[in-house]
Structures are given as C-alpha cells and as structure tokens.
C-alpha cells in the first residue's frame, strides 16, 4: 500500500501534537512517538491484515473505530488510543482469543515470551468471561526441527505472510473458514513431508504465541529472534 505523494502532516495522538508523513499508518506514527497501541497480527516488515482488532483507536469527530495498523494518518486527525471503551473492547477481544483454543500458559513453551499472554497482562485481563470452547486440535511434529501446535494458534497469519512475502515459498496458508479455520502446509499434508518448505524457520521466529516452536524447547524456553525481518523486508522492497 505505497502512496505516491508523501506530504508532511501534523496530528494529535492522545492530546500530543505529532508530525508524520502521509504514507505512515497511525500505528507506525504512534510507535515512533513511544505511544503504545496493542496489536497481535501486525509485525514490522510484513503486509498489513488488520485482523486482531486490538489496535482499534478512536478518531475524534467520527463514531467508527479504526484499526491503527491499516489507517494512514491525515492532517488534523485527533486520535485517542486509550479510553475506557477501548480498554473494555480490547479485554473482550483478548478473552475471545483465549476462549477460542486451548491456551495453557503454565505448560507452554512460550510462557513469559508470549505476546498473547503479554497483552493479557498489559491490558489487565484477569479472567475470561466467555465460555472456553475446548476444541480438539492436532499437533504436527513431523518436521525434523519444528512443531506446530494448533491449540495455541491465534490465526494472526504472520507465518503465512512471512513465508509468502519474505521467503517466497508460500508453504503456509489458511484452510477452512470461520472458527474452523486452520493454518496448513501445502495440501494440508504433514509439515515434515512438505515439498515446498525450505525449513528456513522464519515462520517459527515470527509466531506471537507458542503455536510454532523449535523441537527440544521445554516450558518457557521458546524465545524468538526477529531482527532479520525489517532488513529482509527492505531488501525485498529494493529488488521489486
């Protein structure tokens, strides 16, 4: 989503005057100014999907909420990133994530490194009001180095995007729809027998939860390295 004309604009975020280029999103400008807006699906260097809905913010003068990751800044915008209403919405959205699959932080490889767990703490989610769904989901450990545990997947599609946009293998995609959706490799074959997977491991590094992890990691041992992403994204931009 590049824009040809780049202008300098000024706007307000949480009452602070900030300057930005018109081809930047609200989320980018907020981060540049050390204003934290929660998000789970967006990650620097990958395309924007706007699916986690945690980065919704209020724009004064309009009634609709907009996702900060997918909305470009405009001159004179007056943005509110934290309010009682937003905080209630964000907590409920997190509850929906937790209720959807089987997230057991205590026994998860990503315990203390997990973005979902981190957001729950940051947003003060003390418990989940909606009923847990307890779906039966598979764990695929057929790959020689990695494992996917669908019980912990939040369908942010970071793995799908990094595989397609950076590694250009497009081994991952989403199958099915609605609450039945699952990330899959190739024709829903075991990951280990995928003909297209290059075993580069980028998907594992971008996963926000414990869904994708390296074999041999025990509880709380799975931390991620993502420094490669902005650099590779830039290289890709230059070459295209």
């Amino acid at each position: 989503m590049s824009r040809l004309s780049q202008q300098v604009v000024t706007l307000k975020i949480d009452g602070r005057d900030v300057g930005a280029r018109s081809n930047e999103t609200i989320l980018e400008v907020a981060h540049e100014n050390d204003i934290n807006i929660p998000s789970l699906c967006s990650v620097e260097g990958l395309s924007v999907v706007g699916s986690c809905r945690l980065c919704l913010v209020e724009v004064r003068g309009t009634s609709e909420l907009v996702s900060a990751c997918s909305t470009y800044v405009r001159e004179g915008m007056d943005i509110v990133t934290h309010s009682e209403r937003l905080s209630h919405y964000r907590q409920t959205i997190l509850s929906l994530f937790f209720s959807e699959r089987n997230h057991l932080c205590a026994v998860c490889v990503s315990n203390n490194h997990c973005e979902l767990q981190g957001q729950a703490q940051a947003l003060g989610l003390s418990h989940v009001e909606v009923a847990y769904r307890y779906p039966q989901l598979p764990v695929d450990a057929s790959h020689e180095r990695f494992v996917i545990d669908h019980n912990r997947c939040i369908l942010c599609t970071r793995c799908v995007r990094v595989c397609d946009e950076i590694e250009r293998a497009h081994t991952w995609d989403v199958a099915g729809r609605g609450v039945q959706a699952l990330v899959i490799t190739d024709l829903n074959e075991p990951w280990g027998s995928s003909e297209t997977c290059t075993s580069c491991g980028k998907c594992v590094q971008v996963c926000p939860t414990g869904a994708l992890f390296e074999k041999g990691k025990a509880v709380a041992e799975m931390s991620r390295r993502r420094r490669f992403l902005p650099y590779l994204a830039k290289t890709k931009e230059k070459s295209s």
């Binding site: 699916s51 809905r53 959205i93 994530f97 959807e100 609605g178 959706a181």
Partner: peptide, 9 residues
C-alpha cells in the same frame, strides 16, 4: 470468513 477475531469467535 474467520479473518478477524470478534466475528470469528
């Protein structure tokens, strides 16, 4: 479609 969580779940 299952893309965003409020609708999906």
């Amino acid at each position: 479609c299952g893309k965003c969580v409020p609708c999906r779940v």
